[in-house]
Computed example of a mutant assay.
Amino acid sequence: MTQRNESDPSRFLGIIDFLQAAERLKNTLRSGTTSEGRAESTAEHSWRLSLMVMMFDRELGDCDRLKLLKLCIVHDLGEAISGDVPAIHQQGDDGRHERERSDLVRLGAPLPEDLRQEILALWDEYNAGASPEAILAKGFDKLETMLQHVIGRNAPDFDYGFNLAYGLKQTDKHPLIKQLRALVDEATRRRMKR
């Protein structure tokens, strides 16, 4: 990445326009609830996902941490346009990935070309699980959702057992994520007994 020393007002305006549009993630609600019982936003999910990655920095080995954090930050950006699909409704190739990518292209339209291409490349990498960092990001993403299910003030008929089968494909691909998954599964089982 090249360092720019000159001021480029049109570049800066494009970035600001994008940031203002991305603010929609704060209002994009997910099906999970917070510990206080309100619906969580996609922005809150992405923030805690990034925090999780930071907390396990010591255990991440030689992965590119900056790339990993970028993947976590951009993985749900497209949801600012069409919203979130609850985990219980996600099924195979339901067109969701194409729609999210198309939404991300639309959201990123005001960005300078280099930033637009970087965000799309990161999203594509995440979606394909095409790198060690993407494998970690996908695994942490599933774990964050599961942890929210465990701590959320959920409806009385909430199916905590859903957690035990959710995201196994993504959480089985890395030893750290697999180890954390066992702990989250145990927390889920404890929550089920309440």
Rank of each mutant, 00 (worst) to 15 (best):
R11D: 02
A128E: 09
Q170G: 00
A39L: 14
A155L: 14
G95R: 00
P132W: 03
P132K: 02
D76I: 00
K70Y: 04
A128V: 00
L136Q: 01
A187E: 03
D124A: 09
R30A: 15
D62F: 12
R181K: 08
R65A: 00
V184S: 01
L68E: 06
D159C: 03
A187C: 01
R153G: 05
T188N: 11
E36W: 12
Q148E: 12
L164S: 15
G14E: 07
G108T: 15
L104Q: 04
D57Q: 09
P86F: 03
L29H: 11
K67S: 05
D141L: 04
R191H: 01
D103E: 01
F162D: 02
H149E: 11
A43L: 14
L168I: 11
E44R: 14
H45R: 06
E100Q: 13
G108L: 11
T171C: 12
T34C: 05
A165W: 09
G83S: 09
D141A: 07
G78R: 07
E100A: 11
A39G: 09
F12R: 00
P156I: 06
P156F: 05
R190N: 13
F18A: 02
L104V: 08
K26H: 12
P110E: 06
M55C: 05
G92S: 10
M1R: 09
T171N: 13
D93L: 12
N127G: 04
M1H: 14
T145F: 13
I88T: 15
S50N: 05
T171W: 06
L51N: 10
S31H: 10
K138D: 01
H174A: 14
R190K: 14
L180D: 08
L147A: 14
D124T: 04
I119E: 01
R181S: 07
R194K: 10
G129T: 08
V85E: 03
L13N: 15
A43V: 00
R190H: 11
I177E: 09
V184E: 07
V74C: 09
K173D: 05
Y166C: 07
N127M: 04
G78F: 01
A165M: 10
L120Q: 03
K138C: 09
R58T: 11
L164T: 08
E118Q: 07
L164E: 03
A109F: 03
L13Q: 15
A155K: 15
L180K: 03
T33A: 13
L111M: 07
L147K: 09
I119Y: 01
S50D: 08
D172H: 14
E23C: 11
I73D: 00
E144S: 06
G92C: 07
P112T: 05
E59M: 14
W123F: 13
V53T: 15
V184L: 01
